[in-house]
Amino acid sequence: MVKNSIQKLSIVGLGNVGSHLFDAFAQENIEITHVVTRSEPSQRVRAKSEWIQDPKDLPSGQLVIICVPDDLIASIIAEIPVDCPIAYTSGSVSLSNLPKRDELGVFYPLQTFTKDSPINIFEVPFFIEARSTDFASKLFDLAWVISRNVNYASSADRKKMHLAAVFINNFTNHLAHISKQYLDGEDLDFNHLKPLLKETARKLESQDPISIQTGPARRNDQEIIQEQIDALENPIQKELYRLFSKSIHQTYFND
């Protein structure tokens, strides 16, 4: 059984990631003594934690989890008391690129988070890295309190996972936006595509993506491909359609 030694911590940033971690830790009786945000948090948060605006005022010697945009991580670290262990939640910032601290690590949840959108965090993969084996072990045990999918990963591997996640999540969501935008313009209902989206996700749970590809490019149906490209008015969308079709074609055909 994993024995977690961290019972108190502070969180910097209560955006999409920070708010979910706050709730997950609170649910498991991990005390969040302080939260650092520019604007005043909700009464629900204030009832459990002390709100401060300056990281310099964080309590000494206590773990701080930083949940801010990547370009702010280094500057936030520089403001936190030097004896505080620190972990940050970024998927793409290398540990070696940050200020020299012995107890500095990564606490990266590989998931898309949206405030007030419930998620089963027990299923979320967490990737742990730290400058010392001891601190990495402590972060692993802490992650195990809220998830049953915890892994050690180097900065290089974590960045590769993040890149793949951009394809499978961020780009997929943008493609859904393009589909909705197109159908809205044609006065058609985007909701009709949702069963298709759900079935695609269901298949991916148990099958290799390469085995379930369908559509005009998979069939090499050049007539339909050209017809659909011609139907699009947005030049970027036309190019996206061409690029995706070309990628699919090259995956399945050798010519």
Rank of each mutant, 00 (worst) to 15 (best):
K8R: 04
K180N: 15
E40I: 02
F253C: 02
D208I: 11
S96F: 02
N234F: 07
L95G: 08
D134I: 15
Q226A: 09
R148Q: 14
F190M: 10
K159L: 12
T133N: 12
A143Q: 11
T251L: 06
F135G: 12
G15F: 01
Y241E: 02
D255Y: 07
V82C: 06
E28W: 01
N151A: 06
S92N: 10
L98N: 04
L139G: 00
T112K: 06
F22T: 08
R218F: 10
K160F: 13
N151F: 15
Q7L: 02
T114Q: 12
S5H: 06
S179Y: 00
K138W: 00
P195A: 12
Q213Y: 08
V12A: 03
N220T: 08
K56H: 13
A156I: 11
N191D: 13
S147H: 13
A78P: 00
D157S: 12
P216K: 12
S19F: 00
S155G: 14
T33P: 03
I6Y: 12
E129W: 06
L63D: 09
L110Q: 13
D54T: 14
F127D: 04
N120F: 02
P99M: 06
I77A: 09
A47C: 04
K3H: 12
F25L: 12
H192Q: 10
S137K: 09
E40S: 08
N191P: 04
Q111I: 02
K246E: 15
N170A: 12
T33C: 10
L183C: 09
P216N: 07
K138L: 11
K138A: 15
K246Y: 09
R131A: 05
A156N: 03
D187W: 07
S90D: 08
E123C: 11
S96L: 05
L110V: 11
P216H: 04
L196H: 02
V12E: 01
E239I: 01
I80F: 00
I212A: 09
Y88E: 12
A74N: 03
A74E: 12
L9P: 07
Q43C: 00
V64H: 04
R101N: 05
K8V: 03
Q43P: 00
K160Q: 14
D255P: 00
Q222K: 11
D184S: 07
F25I: 11
S39E: 08
R38S: 15
C84H: 04
I66F: 07
I32K: 01
V93R: 05
V36S: 04
L204N: 09
P118S: 04
G91R: 03
S75N: 10
F22S: 03
K160W: 14
K198R: 14
V145F: 08
H192S: 09
V36I: 14
L240I: 15
Q7I: 05
V106W: 04
H192F: 13
N173W: 11
S96V: 01
L142A: 07
V145C: 13
I52H: 01
E233L: 08
S5R: 03
L95E: 06
C84R: 11
S247I: 10
I6H: 09
D70S: 03
P209F: 07
A136T: 09
N191T: 13
N191S: 14
S60D: 13
Q222M: 11
Y252K: 08
D184Y: 02
L204S: 12
S75T: 13
L243G: 01
Q222E: 09
Y108P: 00
P59W: 05
I76G: 03
L142S: 04
Y252M: 07
K159W: 01
K138D: 14
T89N: 04
V124D: 02
Q181H: 14
